[in-house]
Computed example of a mutant assay.
Amino acid sequence: MTEIDVPRVVAHRGSSAAKAEHTLGAYELALQEGADGLECDIRLTRDGQLVCMHDRTIDRTSTGTGVVSEMTLDELKQFDYGKPGEPAEILTLRELLELAMDWTSVPVKLFIETKHPVRYGGLVEAKLLAELSRFGLATPASASFSRVVVMSFAASAMWRIRRSAPLMPTVLLGETSRYLGGAAAHTVGATAIGPSIMTLREHGDLVDRAAAAGRATYCWTVDEPRDVELCRELGVGWVATNHPGRTKLQLVTAPGV
């Protein structure tokens, strides 16, 4: 198996098995562990700031409570988002972009998921592209050379990105991505499909079908070694995992060794 056949490893919310998800420490560790990409979810605060947060509330991941879209960034910063003994502030997308762009050892890709449905609708994608423009990342020369990939379970979000930034690579996540025959991914111009590992176990032909349509495959969340091997065997392009270091080590080792 050549190096190009090995899936690239994306740190799901950072190295989130070891560190609190979506924290600066989780992403710093992922980079140190050799992750090829960093994945994050973004939401808009009440004052229009993009923060890295999966849930619509901060209840599960912080010492506070409340809905992200109903709070300002300053209000969100009042709480701790780290693990016990490892305090951490809420992370903004800008801070994550700065970390990724400053990492000079090996260029890494940022996989940014916009969450829907949300009260701000398409403003999320508009704000995202504006933020990417600040870093010169909104208009890549080609999809292949883009440092950013935008993802969503919402086909409408993918269409908005396609319309405003036609060369930005995109991943249509979830079950919708299965229906290539129904042209969902084609209609919104997605350059990749994003099935879960559970879907991929049952529909391994997805990878070849996507490739035949000119699309890559991004699979989430691949934590079990047997699933990592499955992705390798099927030819998945990118695997998102909470264990980037362990997964990277497994993939650089020949199968069966």
Rank of each mutant, 00 (worst) to 15 (best):
L31S: 11
I4P: 15
M168K: 11
T241M: 05
R147C: 04
A30T: 07
G85R: 05
V10D: 04
S144D: 07
E95D: 13
T217F: 04
A213Y: 12
M71E: 00
W103T: 09
D36C: 08
R8S: 01
V148F: 01
F79D: 06
E21M: 09
R134D: 01
A240Y: 02
E86I: 04
R246P: 09
V149R: 14
D55W: 05
A17T: 13
E95Q: 13
T72W: 04
S196H: 04
R160C: 07
M158D: 07
T65W: 11
D59F: 12
V9F: 01
S16H: 08
A212G: 12
M1S: 13
L31C: 05
T72K: 12
T217V: 06
W220G: 04
R201C: 03
R178T: 07
R147W: 03
A212R: 15
S16W: 02
R163G: 08
L96K: 13
L97D: 02
T114K: 11
L230I: 01
L73F: 04
S196C: 04
R119Q: 12
D223T: 08
A126T: 14
E95M: 14
S177K: 12
S69C: 11
P140Q: 03
W220T: 02
T72P: 11
I197R: 09
R160K: 14
T2G: 15
P7E: 00
I90V: 01
A18L: 14
L129E: 01
T92N: 06
H116R: 15
R215N: 05
A211E: 09
T114V: 07
L234P: 06
M101H: 14
A184T: 15
I90T: 03
A165D: 03
L96N: 08
G256A: 06
R178E: 05
E233R: 15
V222R: 03
K77T: 06
T45N: 05
G204H: 01
D5T: 15
M101D: 05
A155V: 11
G122Q: 13
D41A: 07
R119I: 08
A212M: 07
S196V: 05
G181N: 14
E95N: 15
S142V: 06
C219K: 07
I90R: 09
L137I: 03
E70H: 03
V108T: 06
E202T: 12
L251M: 03
S105G: 14
